[in-house]
C-alpha cells in the first residue's frame, strides 16, 4: 500500500479505458511543489468515455473499482490502496486546461500526471477558501513559479483582477 499502488490502479483504469485522462490536483499536487503537510484525500481530476447513448456517467468507473474489491467509501472518497481518492469531473474551463497541460512525473517508479504549479495557483485563487489562499502565498514564496505563464492563465480565465487584489494584500512588499 502507498500512493504508488493507488496510482498504479489509476493507470490500470486508464489502460482499461474506464477513465480517459486523469491528473492529480488538490493538496497532494500542491505538496509536490511546496512544503508538504498532512492531507488525507487524493484529488483526481478525470475525463471519462461516454456510455452507450452518449451519457457521461461515472457508473462504469465505480463498477470497475467494486469488481476489483475497492468498495469502501469515506465521505465522497473511495479507498484505493490506503488513499481516499476523490474522482472529480472537470467543472470549469480552468480545470479543463489544467488537465490538458498536466505534466508527467514518476512516484516511486509509477508514472502519473500532475497539474502544473501555475494552474494549481490559479485554482487556489479561483476557489478562494482561506486554506487555498494560504497555499497560494506558499506557492509564490516557495515554488519559484513562472509568473509570466501564471499571468497568462489568469488572463485566460478572468482572474487577473482577483490576483491584483490578492497580491496587493498578501504578496507585494511594503
Amino acid at each position: 500500500m502507498g500512493l504508488e499502488a493507488t496510482l498504479a490502479v489509476l493507470n490500470e483504469m486508464q489502460h482499461a479505458a474506464v477513465i480517459q485522462h486523469y491528473a492529480i490536483g488538490g493538496a497532494v499536487a500542491a505538496f509536490l511543489y511546496i512544503e508538504p503537510a498532512a492531507t488525507f484525500d487524493l484529488d483526481v481530476f478525470i475525463t471519462w468515455h461516454p456510455a452507450e447513448g452518449g451519457l457521461l456517467t461515472p457508473h462504469r468507473l465505480f463498477k470497475y473499482l467494486a469488481d476489483k474489491g475497492y468498495g469502501e467509501y469515506q465521505q465522497e472518497a473511495i479507498m484505493i490502496e490506503g488513499w481516499a481518492v476523490q474522482f472529480l469531473p472537470l467543472g470549469t474551463p480552468l480545470t479543463e486546461e489544467a488537465l490538458k497541460e498536466a505534466v508527467g512525473i514518476e512516484v516511486k517508479g509509477v508514472p502519473t500526471h500532475v497539474f502544473t504549479k501555475e494552474h494549481l495557483m490559479a485554482i487556489c485563487l479561483q476557489t478562494g477558501r482561506p486554506k487555498d489562499l494560504a497555499r497560494l502565498v506558499q506557492f509564490v514564496l516557495e515554488s519559484s513559479p513562472d509568473m509570466g505563464r501564471f499571468a497568462k492563465i489568469l488572463e485566460r480565465h478572468m482572474l487577473t483582477q482577483a490576483w491584483n487584489i490578492f497580491s496587493a494584500r498578501y504578496i507585494a512588499s511594503p
Partner: peptide
Amino acid sequence: IDQKVDLIEKLQ
C-alpha cells in the same frame, strides 16, 4: 518527490 510522498503518508 518520493521522500515528500513518504512524509505525507507518515503525517497521515
